[in-house]
Design a protein around this nucleic acid. Sequence first.
DNA 1: TGCCGTCTGTACGGTAGCCCACAGAAGAAT
DNA 2: ATTCTTCTGTGGGCTACCGTACAGACGGCA
Lengths: 258, 258
Amino acid sequence: MPVVLQGQEAHRAVVSKTASLLTPSPLQNHLLAALPANEFRQLASHLEQVPMRLGEVLCESGSPMQHAYFPTTSIVSLQYVMENGAAAEIAGVGNEGMLGISLFMGGLTTPSRALVQTGGIGYRLPVKVLLEQFHRDGPIARLLLRYTQALITQIAQTGACNRHHSMEQQLCRWLLLTLDRMPTNDLVMTQELIASMLGVRRESVTEAAGNLKHKGVISYRRGHITVLDRAGLNSHVCECYVVVKTEFNRLLPDAPHH
Amino acid sequence: MPVVLQGQEAHRAVVSKTASLLTPSPLQNHLLAALPANEFRQLASHLEQVPMRLGEVLCESGSPMQHAYFPTTSIVSLQYVMENGAAAEIAGVGNEGMLGISLFMGGLTTPSRALVQTGGIGYRLPVKVLLEQFHRDGPIARLLLRYTQALITQIAQTGACNRHHSMEQQLCRWLLLTLDRMPTNDLVMTQELIASMLGVRRESVTEAAGNLKHKGVISYRRGHITVLDRAGLNSHVCECYVVVKTEFNRLLPDAPHH
DNA sequence: TGCCGTCTGTACGGTAGCCCACAGAAGAAT
DNA sequence: ATTCTTCTGTGGGCTACCGTACAGACGGCA
């Protein structure tokens, strides 16, 4: 129920750390990087770098967006918020994807909320430009549709995972998916926040995280989780992680960065 | 675990009953009916009427389809099958939609299995024709993309429902969504089959159905469920049903049938 | 340095849904 | 009509996760 986000304590380390790793560039987003150079050029001048702060809501359920977002060092969580206030994450969007599918799918809005789960940088593109490019029905449109299909897989697999797999398995899945979108092994993340995204109690996360810590797979302190043993996570995760990754790789193979 | 489907006992009543209600026509499918007359004409000669029998698998996980399917009196269940054999329905497709999203989204295959949940009639369209029409980027493409977005909502809401709502609520949701795709209040459906689609034990369905029967909302006998009191279902269902219906109506308003 | 807000650990009873086992009943097949 | 398959009802024990409550600890801030 409490989707409480403290805006004060966190989002320090990540911003300074990742920003210093590389000069920010829209090409850190894999979708943008996968475009042919001349297609990318059509967009480049319209892309605006924006800071995405932890806890920021980029889009409320049912409200139209003026921009599509392409995260690079940030991660966005798509969630459905239930009437009683509980939430469930339906998918995550990081440097592999974009936020704003519904803009070109024709609905303009969706029932999902978009919440920044990891602070960082992203690039945004005005709707108008996105739609112009999409309706040229070229590589950009094909790429965005394939991404949408991959996203559907992630949503569906998350739902099936909700049904069948244990807390610990789901936590491992979530950690791995998040890790894949991060440049480091250190997640700035409270258990409270993870719980609200997975749609479970904070105590359940504490227990599952405690187990993983005990096994030496992760370590953590207030607001930070460090993955010590990625293979360990792999051995505890359910099949859902692999299915999603495989489907993403199939639909969006890594393109040579220009 | 047992996704056992007896091909013998069932699918008698429906086939004879619904088939006699109306002369079969592709326009019984709402997507096809929503097309402008001249657009529909482009497809009409390529649409092939096919019987869709209960238990038939129209598409296995990961295998490419040669046709897109537009159910009219039949209903198809999209499911994810887990490694241990358990399944979870991610969405249903009836006369409001189509099967074969991935054909035009660019992936050609999906990790989901398509199983006929209610026997009846459907129309299929060769991939080649579908793609030709889709890439004209006209009303057909826009319609299919809006349908895809609605389907995404259904998938996501189903997943969230898996997480937060009770067996009984989910059963009501499932019954209402199925009912909306049927011409009668009488579902040819075993509890076993419902259980395998919801991804729960048969006993759980028996118990929830028993409650609803006790309250006079439904009645049933071996392999048949009759909804006596639709308002009663509405009062027991979770919000998920309404969210999905609302989003479908928003994205795909009923078009005047030609 | 000390305070205080927030995060993490733990515990305890409650319960929904699981696994297993089996009995009874309906309807199809012969 | 009888048989036989398959579907439905029921019960008992089990586990994961929930709701609630509270204690302890970390770390930002004054």
